[in-house]
């Protein structure tokens, strides 16, 4: 199953490579990984999407907890949660495609944030599946460039990952 694991860790040099190294050394897969500082400058928050059986996910969380830099972690997928990912897509608008691309972007609540004679840049936020769906509606020919941020997640309700 797919799991979203959020990790609070010491904002130290090398902390990221410890997590990445753990995954490669033990053969776990990482689908996406995002990391940025939090409101507390001594802490970074990392969101990691991985897949595995229950046993593997249990080992992953235990091994992550064992890293000295990891302060706390939460498997978002264990409860209701919100998942968001941001995507920037640059599309080619040549050949009277402007209208149609604008409409597609609107349907997915995307915003056009940059325009040139030949291109639009569309910003889109949502769950990964929504971003996938948007890309599928586009004619592959028009896609010039795709940038995805990787997943961020937060628990719904009172549940929170904080120290």
């Amino acid at each position: 199953m797919r799991h979203i694991i959020s990790i609070l860790m010491e904002n130290e040099a090398g902390a990221l490579s410890r997590v990445a190294g753990l995954f490669s050394a033990r053969g776990y897969n990482i689908e996406s990984l995002t990391v940025a500082p939090t409101e507390d400058p001594s802490l970074s928050r990392m969101t990691l999407v991985t897949r595995g059986t229950d046993e593997i996910i249990e080992q992953i969380t235990k091994q992550l907890n064992k890293l000295i830099d990891v302060v706390k972690l939460m498997d978002m997928t264990e409860g209701p949660h919100i998942e968001r990912e941001m995507m920037l897509v640059k599309v080619n608008t040549e050949g009277n495609r402007r209208e149609e691309l604008k409409r597609d972007a609107d349907i997915f609540r995307g915003r056009i944030i940059d325009v040139t004679d030949e291109t639009y840049t569309i910003e889109l936020t949502g769950a990964g599946t929504k971003l996938d769906a948007f890309l599928e509606t586009l004619d592959p020919e028009v896609i010039v460039e795709v940038v995805r941020s990787g997943v961020s997640g937060i628990a719904r309700g009172d549940r929170a990952l904080r120290i």
């Binding site: 090398g14 490579s17 050394a25």
Partner: peptide
């Protein structure tokens, strides 16, 4: 040294 020893230490510090 930090990178080389990372997979075989409990922890390391620079």
């Amino acid at each position: 040294n930090i990178g080389i020893t990372r997979p075989c230490v409990k922890h390391n510090f620079l």
